[in-house]
Write a protein that binds this DNA or RNA. Sequence first.
RNA 1: GCUCGGGUGGCGGAAUGGUAUACGCGCAACACUUAAAAUGUUGUGAGGUUCAUCCUCAUGAGGGUUCGACUCCCUCCCCGAGCACCA
Length: 855
Amino acid sequence: MAGYNFKRIESKWQKKWEKSRIYEAEFPSKKKKWYSLFEFPYPSGDGLHVGHLRPYIGLDIISRKRRMEGYNVLFPIGWDAFGLPTENYAIKTGIHPEKVTKKNTDNFRRQIKSVGPSLDWSREINTTDPDYYKWTQWIFLKFFEHGLAYKANMPINWCPKDKIGLANEESVGGKCERCGTETIKKDKEQWMLKITAYAEKLLAGLKDVDYLETIKTQQVNGIGKSEGALIPFEIKNPWPGRQISLAGQANIKNGGVEVFTTRPDTLFGVTYVVLAPEHELISKLKTQISNLWEVEKYIAESKKKPEQERVVEGGEKTGVELKGVRAVNPANGKDVPVYVADYVLANYGTGVVMAVPAHDERDWEFARKFKLPVKMVICPNYPEPTCPPLTAAYTGGGRLVDSGKFNGMESEDAKQAITHFVAGKKEVKYKLRDWVFSRQRYWGEPIPLIFCENCASNPKLKDPWPGRQKSKLSLGEEMNPGWIPVADLPVKLPKVKDFRPGENGESPLASLEKWVKTKCPKCGKPARRETDVMPNWAGSSWYFLRYVDPKNKKEFANIKKLEYWMGAALPSRSSKSEGGVDWYNGGMEHVTLHLLYSRFWNQFLYDIGLVPHREPYRKRTAHGMILGEGGIKMSKSKGNVVNPDDMVNIYGADSLRLYEMFMGPFDQAIAWDSKNMEGVSRFLGRVWSFAVEKEITKDSVGGRLEPLINRTIKKVSEDIETMAFNTAVSSLMIFMNECRNEERIPQKVWARFLLLLAPFAPHIAEELWSMLKHKKSIHLEPWPTYDPELIHEETFELIVQVNGKVRAKVSVKRGISEVEAKELAMKAPGAAEYVARGIVKIVFVPNKLINFVVK
RNA sequence: GCUCGGGUGGCGGAAUGGUAUACGCGCAACACUUAAAAUGUUGUGAGGUUCAUCCUCAUGAGGGUUCGACUCCCUCCCCGAGCACCA
């Protein structure tokens, strides 16, 4: 019989599987469903490297096991193909992104197929396909209708040299990626999605899902909820005769500011107040600021600074006092100086901070630099009479001191009491900002809105188009006067000649006057199209929904199919809303944004009754990155990219799969080492030669190998569930090593080994399975089970310890009693002499060890 | 700075509080071969000791809990990832 010819075997079975379509998901089906998902790739021009494949192989193993366990498995793939690299390539070469995308996806598809994953290719999707992005646009309009999309003035990164707007990822460290010029912020009208409206729900939803703890933490941090209070500070009028006119907040009588704080208990410790440079109060107080020129100079400088520099680590705090302006502490009526400093952020809280240097690190630092007083009001070790002098800010809790009638109160209680005392109010703030949904770019989904001057000035004038509620504006139209949804989706991306963004920071689409000029779908008067496109994140925010019904022309997905695959039901049918993708794996780098965005879309669609499940993913795990040899990131420029094509050529797909799983823990970053491919390759070679050289008997009992195969089944089954693929592979190797001594093996044992091997090395397992004269694919056979009674040998090595140190080993029967074990162990050479010293205590662990504690 | 991981042979890494170093790479010796490759067999933490044996020391450092600690607790050092002036 010939040697292990992986090339022949692999191409043979890949063709057969494709033809027999054994990996395609069924619908309808009476079986239990299973939906496993990996993050669909961005098809870059560089092709796949071995790192991309790790999560695919891992989930393929899980999916294959589920299929063998009798589930109806949905394991789909698609392409997240809109994006900047393709667009930039188009700008450079003039080749249309569509062509580039086609070429790249073809290459990716070929590469992925070459490792034989059990993907359902009949459900392949592509975010750049108009049949797909029609629904991305459609969902966007749903957001619009429900008042969750709005236009706002938001800064974009602008390169003054290239005269183009840059995406955040192109403005590296505040510099233009192409020419290195420092970018500046330029205000532009942009579409926003109101994700902040879902902050609380996104937080609450985490309770029902099974994400890795670190992933949950990142979600929580990304949302950044903090509970605190708004406290009013009045601005003292230095010239009592003169009237100061200030647009006051609700609960400030004479004008002033509200501060947001999470520590109202420290209010008596406030020694100054700080405004963000952008704060509007500064211009309103102009006439009172005696050092106005200095203040304005500071503001101008800090505006020039790119955000990165403003937030340098350990950077010296800067600021300027507003001379002539004082703020009044509502707790004690005392007035404190007011500063402007850029360590206060304009877009968080109210843009004003009450500074408590004694109990806040940033304020401490600032106060030290500007020699401002530090007043301690929280004492950590009360009732000790004296509090230790502060050498740093104390940010913990304790009891209040030097705080008037609140002295002695617990800081937690004081939060409420003091807020109430100064007529402040409780307030919750989030770090999460609304999502800037516009890109002034080409290669993205056009935003399907039209601006109509006529409708803007006469909002209720005309009837809407057929099929919509008559005489009532949607929330989106109310909020964004004149913006009218396109009636016929998709809005196809028009062809352009020049893919460069426009001179004034507009999308290349803005240059297509013919396309831009259109008729209002509502009143029929001349109108203009929105020329911005959606960000990369749009298509990936809902792709997991499309997989259940990828070819549907009428809906983004059929509700029956959604209910089946997500394992949940619409509220009208059942109260079961927990469901979603059963297992979603992806990179750690997407754990904040992509996860947040897609959870937001799904929750919104759930709220408006379009999907049955509240949360998109039941379980989320993350794989570790594969680094180049030497432990550095694989990149073209470093020349350390390992191409899977080469590995498949030299060692075969099964070896590559096995090595990627064997190299180390799945969730940890690990350096590639092609040398180590030898090990798994030899293992498969041994499996092959064993199968062809040794006798496979028809015995109906497992014989000597029965305990080992049972242990192996247990280990492999459990390890797959925890993604401990490396130890699963090693236990397969251990089994094979043990077999080497055998001249014949019962088919009963061998078959179970092949079944365990099948998810890892599907081609060789299938070939060897067919050599056992099986007609059906091994991948449709039931997963083997083990008998807990059979996993142990009859005898074991009893470890004999003296004072916790191993002194002897004795081979004894399983289930030996303590008394018997003691007898044998005491006589064991190596232990006897110690035991003679006199036993103080004996510790006996059944079927494992006996420990003599001696003098 | 904060949060979460991690630190074990020459290397990748294993170990429900119970034989540390599984499995693999590499290396060495041997077998097969005219020879090499491939393959197979055996050995392989360090130091000492003996013909076999045995002893001591080793899981980033230092303490602690325990009959027994890579594992649990405290202090500190280093590496990686994420967040980063969010009041």
